[in-house]
Design a protein around this nucleic acid. Structure first.
Lengths: 193, 193
DNA sequence: TACATTACTTAACTTAAGTGAACGAGATTA
DNA sequence: TAATCTCGTTCACTTAAGTTAAGTAATGTA
């Protein structure tokens, strides 16, 4: 499992053995069961995550309804906005599947970054990349219809459609579960004709 | 004008006079006329921007139609995804108003960052903040109807509605200009009743 | 096993966005 | 000045998403 993390890091910086050991000694690997809630609305947190195996999602509860806005799967890292802004969380984070991830906290990161400037550089590059990636996702969302969004997802993350419940997918696509059902029926109807 | 930039930077790191001078000597301040195109689809670029005064927007041309996805105004910084990914740009950047901005390029930034680690830290913090901010914007967009999005914008960036053409606002809100007109009429109708 | 709960689909109806067309106001150009 | 173009609005019509409700399948629980 550690190798997955080091493999990921190696895309950004190359670590010495000392640096690798420093990372391992932080004891950041966690296994969490499907359904576990990692963060609740209203809580404060300093934790960042990196998914080694499995799937976690973020969702808001608005008017008593769950609104899923993101899924993070293998090799994806993220830091909740509440950690950056030092505010109570506006959303929940929970595990869609049994998941193995790393959990780091921002105090720890400050320390590591000052000891190893390499990590600072990695965090900068990673943030810039994620920002660019998210910008493109957002733009694509804005400029597409729900049906196009679903078809895009089918292309870009086909695994998600298999491993995630439909009603969570629906709000991820910005629509109601009934609309997703209908939209899927419409597409398979088109395929026939 | 320089003071606006230094004022912005001081929110992240404090610069010595030497560092300030180093920045000024890079000659990054530009004035651009309304309507100027800063970047075209298909072009490669290494430029990042920081708006001191005015407004610039990013837009795609899809099926011959302009789709505006973002506006950047006073005190906002951004780096186009194509700069990060080193790919040809998928969109255009142009000036909505006469604008004063800083233009830096990524080679220059690599150099400055290695000379002054402070900048590296600033870039990391800034990217993390922008990522969190954009995440919240995206989530809000996903979980709102077009009408709610317009009302949100009215709260969060009322200036935009004044300074930007309606048809650009419409695609920024993910709808057609006619729908924005209708939606506005609907709202003022509600206000009366 | 029986019962309850949740997930997904389908249907009928409502609401709002997309589409195509027309119009007037302003700005731009010949 | 007249002609043209762009922009914003309105209208009638079409299309698709939201809403409410019902039914079925799958899952979890006593």
């Amino acid at each position: 499992m550690q190798e997955i993390l080091f493999n990921f890091i190696s895309k950004y910086v190359s670590l010495t053995e000392d640096e690798q050991n420093a990372l391992v000694s932080l004891d950041i690997f966690r296994s969490v069961k499907k359904g576990t809630t990692l963060l609740k609305e209203g809580q404060k947190s300093k934790e960042s995550y990196f998914v080694l195996k499995g799937c976690i999602r973020t969702y808001y509860v608005l008017d008593g309804e769950e609104k899923t806005t993101a899924f993070y799967t293998e090799m994806e890292a993220f830091t909740p906005p509440c950690v950056i802004n030092k505010t109570p969380s506006e959303y929940y984070i929970s595990c869609v599947e049994d998941t193995i991830l790393t959990v780091s906290n921002s105090d720890m990161e400050v320390e590591v970054n000052s000891k190893f400037p390499k990590f600072e550089i990695m965090c900068r590059i990673l943030s810039e990349e994620l920002l660019a990636k998210q910008r493109i996702d957002f733009d694509e969302f804005k400029t597409s219809s729900p049906e196009q969004r679903y078809l895009n997802l089918l292309q870009s993350r086909p695994d998600l459609i298999q491993r995630v419940p439909q009603h969570q997918l629906a709000s991820f696509l910005g629509i109601k579960p009934q609309s997703l059902s209908r939209l899927r029926a419409r597409i398979t109807e088109k395929d026939k004709g």
